[in-house]
Design a protein around this nucleic acid. Sequence first.
DNA 1: TCGTTTTAGAACAAGGTGGTTATGAAGTGC
DNA 2: GCACTTCATAACCACCTTGTTCTAAAACGA
Lengths: 131, 131
Amino acid sequence: MPDDRISLVFAALADPTRRAILTRLTQGDATVAELAAPFDVSQPAISRHLKVLENAGLISRTRRATARLSHLEAEPLREVTAWLARYQRFWDESHERLDELLAALQGRDPEGRADAAPTNGADDGQDRDHR
Amino acid sequence: MPDDRISLVFAALADPTRRAILTRLTQGDATVAELAAPFDVSQPAISRHLKVLENAGLISRTRRATARLSHLEAEPLREVTAWLARYQRFWDESHERLDELLAALQGRDPEGRADAAPTNGADDGQDRDHR
DNA sequence: TCGTTTTAGAACAAGGTGGTTATGAAGTGC
DNA sequence: GCACTTCATAACCACCTTGTTCTAAAACGA
């Protein structure tokens, strides 16, 4: 996986264990042992999950005595949400197309889907690192 | 990577090439050759990226003559956004903490961060499959 | 200082990812 | 039917990921 910020965040979120850890952290900071408890994986495995989350900026860590506390940092999630927001109109378009389909079923023009395929201009200006 | 839906979507989005493909598809359906053009990777590599996107439900495909058109399906992005929405209040809390920090800098209580660490109750009820 | 607790790192195995090249299958059109 | 275009699949490779166990480092408490 590439090492740009948003790719790291998406990759970190692709693992259910890590998502569950983030969810747990919404209830408050926690030690490694506390985070490891619900899972039947070893402590080093959890430590590595935490490192992945930390590299993605999704958690920060502090010391308390011999323990290390993990703290949720939600800012990257905000960035991801901002990225996703650009696609929101396509959810709406799905609804429009559904309307079109219903209209078509009632009468004419059984062509449901636009076919633009402009020769190019791809990419979006913030994914400029595909290896 | 696990094979639950949301993990597949996050994993698919973790690759910049695939994100760029999705962005391209916001301009209209496209053939494999058209999608491959902006990248300096082989056609089979693009075909596999498309398969990943299809498995995640992010695109659908139809035939037109000998070509296969890819079509953006934004619904999974909506699901991801819904998942992320649960963390929105923590962005707000960051702001609250920023306010607290500013207040602290002006006077008292240099303790910036709550320390709950409730013994457990982890997981979130929709990530119930950590292998 | 020394033992205890807590966590991280090293070394290893198994499996996945993303890239390549070579080749075959599907569909069109003459 | 046959050649051509378009795409997918197979086989292979390098590397990354996730898990393991074993061990060491860090911070404390006695």
